[in-house]
Design a protein around this nucleic acid. Structure first.
Lengths: 233, 233
DNA sequence: GCAAAAGTGTTTGGTCTACACCCATGG
DNA sequence: CCATGGGTGTAGACCAAACACTTTTGC
């Protein structure tokens, strides 16, 4: 390390707010601290940034002890927290990431780790509660103008299943009709050609869809103030 | 410091991409490095995070040596860069901020510091070129769905002047007519009641407007997938 | 045939773009 | 009274919300 009095150095942590829709509710993965400070409260998975890794690699490495990394369909940087008093033991800087896991996966978690509904968090450690809020806000915003849904949905799904995922993540009602039309028009979804078997009570079998792109894309970049159209030369 | 081999510590830098519209073009403030590495190239203002300050305070402090901090109408965190090789001298982590200065101000800069059009950057140091790109993307996105314009515009302005600012920042044409209507309908702008004197060539005098709120607000949060309206009970 | 569930047709409302036109000023 | 620039009126495109209606299944 090449720190000095006027170039002080601090341990840097990488944290992850990993979100998944489970049983029609959005959950966040937390682990329960055994030791002080904040013993007994719940914290985001994470840990120190090592010498030769980027923050992104660090988050992936730390999460590997919780879930298989291949289950993470999306990972993006959220924000960096630097309040000198955020850790009572001494100064740390922490960079938080948002991670998303498709709803069809159910990774086996370590003993101390569990899913918690984002609407009913237990007592949280450090500033982790407000980081979860940030993650939630980011996800909700991006569901509207990107295709992030791909990271919450299974590989194939009916529109009704997708609607349940969006409702859980957004926290308000969305109709299947409009969701289908918005996403199909934008080319975010495409039909697989398969059908889902009807439920036990009968009903028309649902067509199955998939997300057209397996990575994040901005699908509606300009809310307003669009660039001029080129219909006139 | 309480670092250890498995909790390594790194100097942490705070950087600022300060943008301003000058002469109808968007510029970024850069200073020219006198020493290696990257001697002669241009870098973002910034410096080490000190022991008792937050990143936000650090950016403000570092910028104070370049411009009066009161000139900064807006400052927000952008992203954190952690590539181990981003500084050839040794590992650093850097958190970049976006700063905005209204177009009517012309702070006197230090000798080594100058404004550069974002469309024609000189050779840049470290990863600072790509940080400027990030800042630009963030500003352009937020011009569309927030009132950030307040941080680029003077206290009062005609719609034509505001349009010139938006055109410079967005990089494409915007008509004064539509800009006025969009921003007035949303309540982002309000008339001051004053008029601008007509130009030397005559012409109808312009009404002067101001931004209704002096701080960042999200004015169009949901591009699509809006929550259901409550017009029916 | 009837209930259940999926999907389509259609209406309505809202918002933005584009462009024609009208207004207010200096020479 | 005409050129110059600012502002308004209005038509058209597009998009999404809402909701009625049709389709397809199990019983």
């Amino acid at each position: 390390m090449w720190s000095s009095p006027d170039r002080p150095a601090y341990p840097h942590h990488a944290l992850a707010a990993v979100l998944q829709v489970r049983a029609a509710r959005l959950h966040v993965m937390l682990w329960q601290r055994a030791n002080d400070p904040f013993a007994g409260t719940w914290a985001l998975p994470g840990g120190p940034l090592l010498a030769e890794e980027t923050l992104g690699a660090s988050v992936a490495r730390q999460l590997a002890s919780k879930v298989e990394v291949t289950h993470l369909a999306h990972l993006e940087q959220l924000e960096t927290r630097s309040d000198p008093s955020r850790d009572p033991r001494g100064r740390t800087v922490a960079t938080a990431y948002l991670g998303l896991i498709p709803s069809d996966l159910d990774p086996t978690l370590p003993e101390d780790t569990a899913w918690h509904p984002v609407g009913a968090l237990p007592r949280t450690a450090f500033d982790h509660g407000s980081i979860v809020e940030s993650a939630l806000a980011r996800l909700r915003a991006k569901l509207s103008y990107t295709n992030v849904g791909f990271a919450l949905a299974p590989p194939a799904f009916s529109i009704a299943e997708l609607r349940d995922i969006y409702v859980a993540a957004l926290g308000y009602e969305v109709t299947a009709t409009n969701l289908q039309r918005v996403l199909l028009r934008r080319g975010v979804l495409e039909a697989t050609g398969e059908m889902a078997p009807p439920g036990r009570a009968g009903g028309r079998p649902a067509m199955l869809y998939r997300f057209a792109a397996p990575a994040l894309e901005v699908t509606d970049p300009f809310a307003v103030l669009r660039p001029p159209s080129n219909r006139r030369r």
